[in-house]
Structures are given as C-alpha cells and as structure tokens.
Design a protein around this nucleic acid. Structure first.
Lengths: 196, 196
DNA sequence: TTTAAAATTTGAACACTGTTCAATAAATTT
DNA sequence: AAATTTATTGAACAGTGTTCAAATTTTAAA
C-alpha cells in the first residue's frame, strides 16, 4: 500500500502550500514564517520539515499556481480585444495589474532570493516565460500581418519583459511613479512606443 | 560647547555608516544585522540605537554615498567616448556593471523595502534619478544635434530607466540570462534599439 | 482483538534576529 | 575633588529558523 502513503503525503503538502498562498496573497512575503504557515495548515511548525526542506522550498511551490492564475486573469481580461497589438496591449496591462493587485506575489516572483534553493533555473523559467507565453499568439499574429519584422518582434518582446519588470520594481518597491494613474500612463506610453 | 558634542556625534555616526557600507559591499544585505554592524564599528549593539532609529535608517544613509560612487565609476569609465550616443551607451553599460559588481548595493537600491522608514520619497529620488543624472548631458547633446526629437528623448530616457531596472532585477535576482556575456549582449541590444 | 512495528506528529532546545531599558562607565562642569 | 551630565553597555524579552529525540497515531501482524 504505497499508494495510500503518497496520497496522504500529497494532501498534507497541499495543506501547507495553500496556507502559504493565503499568507502571500494577504500579508505578503514578510509574514511568511514556518510557525505562521504551520498554524494556518493546522500542524506544528516541526511537521513542515517532514514535507519540505524549509519555508523557501515551500514558497517556490506556490509560483506555479500563481503563474497559472495570472495567465487566466490576463487572458480573461483581454478577451474582448481583437488579436494583434490591441490584444497584446490589453494582456500587458492586465499582467501589470495582477502584480499590483498582489504585491506579495510580485515579491515572490522577482525579489525573493532563489540562490539557496537549487532549482536548476526552473523557477526562473516559470517567471521569465510568463509574459512571453501570454503574448505568444499575438506576436505570431503581428509577424504574420507583417506589422513588425521578425527581428523587430524579438527586440520588442525582450523590451516588454525588461520594461514591465522595471516598472513593477520601481512602482511596487519605490513608489515611482507615486500614483497608480501615473504608473498606468507610463505603462501605456512604454508599450505604445515599443510596438510603434 | 554644543560644537564638540555634534562633532563627536557625527564621528560615531560615521563609524556605523562605514561599517554598514563594508558589510553591504562584501556580504550583502542579508548579513546586515544590528550586532554585526556594531561589532565592526567597535561598539555594542545597543549603542547603535543612540544614533539611529534602527538598522534600516542606517542602511539608507548609505544610499547617498553609493550613489556618488556609482556616478564617479561610470563617469570615469565612459570618459574616453565622444559626447552623444557613444558616451551615453558607455555610461549605461558602466551603470549596469557597477551593480553587477556590488549586488548588495543593487538590493539596497531596488529591493529593500522603504515602506517602513518614512522617507518622504527622498531615497526613491536618489535611486531613480541616478541614471538620468548620469546621462543628462548626453541627452542634451543628442537633442541639440537633432539625432532624436525632444519627445523621442523623453521616451528613450524613460525606457532606459525601466529597461536597466528590469535587466538588473532579472539577472541579479533570477540569473536571467545565465551568463554575464549574454547579459551584456542583451544590454547592448536594448540600448541600441532604444537609441535606434 | 490484542500486540508489535512502523510512520507521523510534536515540543523542547539552541542559535540567531531586533529592541528596550536600567545600570555602569566616562566625560564635563561646578 | 565632587557633582552632574552624557555615553555606553549587557541583561532580558519576543521574535525568527532548525534539529532531534520523545510522544503519539496509524498500520500490520499474531
């Protein structure tokens, strides 16, 4: 009966992961502690170490779930727009909106050090490929319609990833610009410029 | 004799600031602790609280010094290039190089939460204005030579700040791209594209 | 069903962190 | 030299992560 054991293990791991996700969404990374997670999961803090190496490993298990949530959020939000630059722009803005809504998830994706947890770059790929994955179909469409050349698409794709990361870093970390309205305007200016 | 007291106070504050700067440069933000700083400064950890509200306040006093250091570093490094896009590009790459060399200073500038310390956006301005200040003369030159329009200069200026912040976030935080050579190539591509 | 074995859960203990505050030490003034 | 002010300090407390042997629960065997 090795099956039963695995089912139980997966279940308990899920309890810890769910508890961690709750904390990340509501209070942010600073409130994530071994004892805090275990309390929410209904276990002792020591039990956590039977299922995860430490809280960091646990936290990075949330990345996959949040990534999917962000994909869904942006896809739904941009659904009304026609394929191409219009749709791409809507996706881009919804992507930014998601992280502004959940700053704790931004911290997890872009600020939390993963130097310790030997991850083989898996988490990095999940994070870095999120925006490109979201926009892939529209890039195809834009290239097909010859609105931009292949080369231009590549550089724009890269610029969008770098620019969005920079915008979130400055806005969520340094309150620059100081209002959400200014932030949005800057985001629109940026993507309009890059899609020129 | 209020003078003597102030001199002494400034001196001791300097000892703590220097100790903090040493730690930030060598071991990074994770090693900054009240006891660690005080040890290096040659005082008890309790003495720190007589001169600073807490370690965070102390840490942000380092921002000004590092900002100046980065300005000097990039200015010297780009000195050989002729004014304009060539010089601008050299400054941009040196700016990135400085933070790659001292990841602890990058963390301090772009990752450390300043939500707690009510700073009136002073630290934000120091951080955000660094690259624009560095490049100001070259932007003037470029606009004068009509290589780019006023409007184009503004959007490029903004894109450079956002892009550099994003690049450093992804490279230093997520090891993307995985090698420094790739990082440099991406940086060059980005600035060439933005200066089109 | 009772007993033995295996698996799971747990809190004590230790080493770190930040922070406060009363006691000590040093410097200054009287 | 004595009194007063100023500066420095370590003890103490509440957090943090982590380990490990003991206690508990679950499973298997008799």
């Amino acid at each position: 009966m090795v099956r039963k054991k695995e089912i139980h293990e997966q279940r308990v791991r899920g309890y810890f992961i769910d508890a961690t996700k709750e904390i990340l969404k509501s209070e942010g990374l600073k409130s994530v502690s071994v004892r805090n997670i275990a309390d929410r999961a209904g276990y002792s803090f020591a039990t956590l170490y039977n299922y995860f190496k430490d809280a960091k490993e646990l936290v990075f298990h949330c990345v996959e779930d949040f990534r999917k949530e962000c994909l869904d959020y942006a896809t739904v939000k941009a659904a009304k727009q026609p394929a191409g630059t219009r749709h791409l722009k809507a996706l881009f803005l919804a992507y930014l909106e998601y992280f502004v809504q959940y700053p704790g998830i931004y911290e997890l994706f872009f600020k939390e050090a993963l130097s310790d947890i030997d991850d083989n770059g898996n988490t990095t790929m999940l994070v870095v490929s999120l925006l490109p994955t979201l926009c892939e179909a529209d890039w195809q469409h834009i290239a097909k319609q010859k609105e931009l050349s292949r080369k231009e698409v590549e550089t724009s794709k890269s610029a969008l990833l770098l620019g969005s990361t920079g915008m979130l870093s400055l806005y969520l970390g340094r309150r620059y610009p100081s209002s959400y309205a200014s932030f949005l305007k800057e985001a629109e200016n940026f993507i309009d410029q890059q899609l020129k």
